[in-house]
Design a protein around this nucleic acid. Structure first.
Lengths: 225, 225
DNA sequence: CTTCGTTTTTACAGATTTTTTACATTTATT
DNA sequence: AATAAATGTAAAAAATCTGTAAAAACGAAG
């Protein structure tokens, strides 16, 4: 298991590296945000430890960009300042956990194990995360849908739309509601944005996009699963 | 969906608010136990996130009192101390889940979703949407009516007309009133619009459209269920 | 700064629903 | 029964809504 340690303080960085290598992890290191991103792209670690205050690019930003490539990779933030930590919650970063400096060895190990376990179980069972719609399975964390061994890559918005419809299966979900849930703002009367996404989704996941079985149109109101 | 966030720490409270609003929830906040109860009574949220240690009234107590009013509302406890969490399990509060601080965004979202889903299904089985008219059942949320296993697709307007008649069952509803309720404007003397809709509805849901049993005409005034 | 990929807007063609028209039928009144 | 007023309904017309290609705007990555 490869862990990326992004931390500018050399002592902490080396301390973490030594600790984690003793635990059997393979460590990749980065001294600033840009390097972290670069290493991430090149080496594709399985886990990321991110300091928040780093030169060039802060941890929030790094997390955002990493998440953009893989929405399910576990990320733990590391910081000395509790305000920084609290901000993590406020930003839409999807952090899995965080560790306050100064931290003890056991704490680091424990948290990494806990997060790993959480992520593992959701992947292993494949049941905790994801839901079925007709004959396809949607896995929000992987941004994917599958029918048998066919795999469809979905965007975050696609997943949200599907989830929205799924959560109210049987009921009609109005355009307004879909827009609110998936875009977080009001639906503008003559916008074809939603239709465009539905169209794209149908082309992707419906066997016959002309006769949709999963996403049905309810004229004058919205859509229904 | 309205979520009540009861949490005294301003950072965590605002972080949660921002996170959940991005997810499409409407957030209500409270800084202490008493406020939480007050907001609960006034706004009737659909979901409660409760910190355990709060000024004035602790989370256990708040939960107990909320449960007294609504024994089915989902409640998730939030706490940093595992002993506190353990007590939740010991007290018979009927908590649906709990979250340990520090927590990651995805954990919060995942738990809320899981609990919501659990409660949804219990609602699905328990709570049925709609009303009965004679031998058919009307489900406004699905825009459907059913007689046995026959399903009739209805438009929003159809449902409104039926609801209008249902709400005053036994009484005659004048054309004027129906038009006002369902179209939001005045009925124009020589418009056949309303009749047309009634006609369509009767063809759809009446066993014998010529001898209507659900929607009856009251000559010179309007219709009655 | 440029390029590539994605999202949003524009524009328009169909599709679907609602309203009107026109006339048949029913009901109340004389 | 004759008449006038109100209702029922098929079919045409009008209004509204949806689907989608293509252009424009946006954002991330190099």
């Amino acid at each position: 298991m490869k862990i990326l340690i992004a931390e500018d303080d050399v002592y902490i960085r080396e301390g973490l590296t030594e600790l984690l290598e003793l635990e059997g992890y393979q460590c990749l290191v980065a001294c600033d945000g840009e390097e972290a991103l670069q290493v991430y792209v090149e080496k594709k670690p399985d886990f990321v430890l991110l300091d928040i205050m780093m030169p060039k690019l802060n941890g929030y930003e790094v997390c955002k960009r990493i998440r953009h490539q893989d929405s399910s990779i576990p990320v733990i933030f590391v910081s000395a300042k509790s305000e920084e930590i609290d901000r993590v919650l406020g930003l839409e970063l999807g952090a899995d956990d965080y560790i306050m400096k100064p931290f003890g060895n056991r704490e680091v190990i424990a948290r990494i194990r806990a997060v790993t376990r959480r992520c593992m179980t959701t992947q292993d069972t494949g049941k905790v995360d994801g839901f079925d719609m007709e004959d396809i399975r949607v896995s929000p964390n992987q941004l994917r849908a599958t029918r048998g061994d066919q795999v469809f890559e979905l965007s975050l918005r696609d997943v949200n739309i599907l989830r929205c419809l799924y959560q109210q299966k049987g009921n009609v979900v109005s355009r307004d509601e879909l827009f609110n849930q998936c875009w977080g703002r009001d639906y503008m009367a003559n916008s074809r944005t939603l239709d465009q996404h539905i169209s794209k989704l149908r082309k992707l996941i419906e066997k016959d996009p002309k006769l949709p079985r999963i996403i049905r149109t309810v004229h004058g109101v919205g859509y229904r699963f």
